[in-house]
């Protein structure tokens, strides 16, 4: 079964998104920062979508997205950034790293579920 990797340094957001997805029948893996996310992704090949915060300690979300493509060579996993900020420079970096899109907090549950299900196929 396809899983969603939720990466956020805030346990509140992480658990909220995680349990929200879980309540809608979507399996999740949680990670605290970009580096943790990379490790979890490496360990679990059933992860088909990453929903990640941008600003995080140790490794930020965009750097993680870049490393997912360059270091892990994983070009199939979809990446969505969950953010409170988004500017042209960040958007360009995201686009270069194959980021599918940006969800601005606070997010709307139904839309997220719909899109997540669509992206998981």
């Amino acid at each position: 079964m396809s899983k969603v990797l939720v990466v956020d340094d805030s346990a509140t957001v992480r658990n909220e998104v995680g349990s929200f997805l879980k309540n809608n029948g979507i399996a999740t893996v949680l990670a605290e920062n970009g580096k943790d996310g990379l490790d979890k992704l490496k360990a679990d090949s059933s992860i088909k979508l990453i929903i990640s915060d941008v600003n995080m300690p140790i490794m930020d979300g965009l750097t993680m997205a870049e490393k997912v493509r360059s270091e892990l060579g994983n070009n199939t996993v979809n990446i969505i950034m969950l953010t409170t900020e988004s500017d042209a420079r960040m958007k360009q970096r995201g686009k270069d790293a194959g980021v599918k899109g940006w969800i601005v907090k606070p997010f709307k549950g139904d839309a997220v579920i719909g899109a997540v299900k669509k992206l998981l196929g």
Binding site: I103, K108, A111, G114
Partner: peptide
């Protein structure tokens, strides 16, 4: 900013 130039799906988000 997260809408213009992005995937259609982002509208729902």
């Amino acid at each position: 900013s997260a809408l213009v130039g992005e995937d259609e799906m982002m509208w729902d988000f």
